[in-house]
Simulated assay, not measured.
Amino acid sequence: MTIDVSVARVIPLSPERVAEYAMDWRHDADWTQGIRTAELTREADGGGFGVGAEVTRTAFFLGRRIDYVLRVAAHDFPRLLDMVSVAGPMPMHVTYSFEPSPDGTLARIRVQGGSGGFYRLAAPLLARQVRSSLRKDLRDLERRLTHHTD
């Protein structure tokens, strides 16, 4: 079974403000469920963060530690950050998009992936858990940006 989960939330700030924070890997552990650490382990070809850069994340999901590496496949600030896993327990594709909305920014996260090994057995639970986690991610992103100066 493959997983394809998408969630969206309107955040009452400009796409530039939302993307500036959300697209910065240094903030991943602050607003993304389960992520304990995130580290830029490969810079983009032109240096820094962009297409080709890799971020290594350590997370805990369903009681298990997961180490995985996401490579930036597309980076179009402030509209889109698209990443694919190049190492980890299962294939994964994560897309963050930020579009102008009358009330601020329509922030969307989509996670697509195959469920292998342990995760195959837990696929229905996994999809529900991913959806719940992504909803919390967007809620926490909004809270950080509207109630916290960074």
Rank of each mutant, 00 (worst) to 15 (best):
R26C: 02
R143P: 01
G63V: 12
A19L: 03
D137A: 13
A74G: 08
S14C: 03
L62Y: 03
A123L: 10
R64N: 09
D28T: 13
D103R: 15
G34N: 12
L126G: 05
V18E: 02
V5D: 01
L141A: 06
F118A: 07
L138V: 08
F118Q: 06
Y96T: 00
L134H: 12
V72H: 01
W25V: 02
A73P: 00
T58N: 03
E16G: 00
P12T: 02
T149H: 12
A53N: 06
L81H: 05
M92I: 15
R65C: 07
F61P: 02
L80V: 10
F61W: 07
R135G: 08
T2C: 01
F77E: 10
S101R: 04
L40G: 08
F118P: 11
V18K: 02
Y119Q: 06
V7K: 13
L141S: 09
L138W: 05
F61H: 15
F60I: 09
T56L: 10
G104Q: 09
V7P: 00
R9C: 01
T105A: 01
A29V: 07
V18Q: 06
E16I: 00
D82P: 07
A38E: 00
P12W: 05
L141Y: 13
L121F: 15
E54H: 05
G48K: 08
P124I: 07
V10G: 00
V72N: 01
I66T: 11
R128S: 15
A127V: 07
F60D: 10
V69M: 08
A123Q: 08
R26V: 05
G113N: 09
L134V: 05
D24G: 03
P91F: 07
R120T: 13
D67P: 06
P15C: 04
S133F: 12
V86H: 02
I109H: 02
R120K: 11
V69F: 04
A122S: 08
A59S: 09
Y68C: 00
S115M: 13
S132M: 09
A107D: 00
A38M: 06
G104K: 03
F60Q: 15
T2W: 00
H75V: 00
V84D: 15
A123S: 14
H148V: 08
D4K: 09
M23P: 07
A122R: 09
V94R: 05
D28A: 08
S133P: 00
L134N: 15
L40V: 09
R71W: 04
L121V: 11
D103F: 10
W25K: 04
L13H: 02
Q33V: 14
E43P: 01
A44W: 03
R135H: 12
L121H: 14
M92D: 15
L106R: 14
F77A: 15
D103Q: 14
S132Y: 11
L70V: 08
V5K: 07
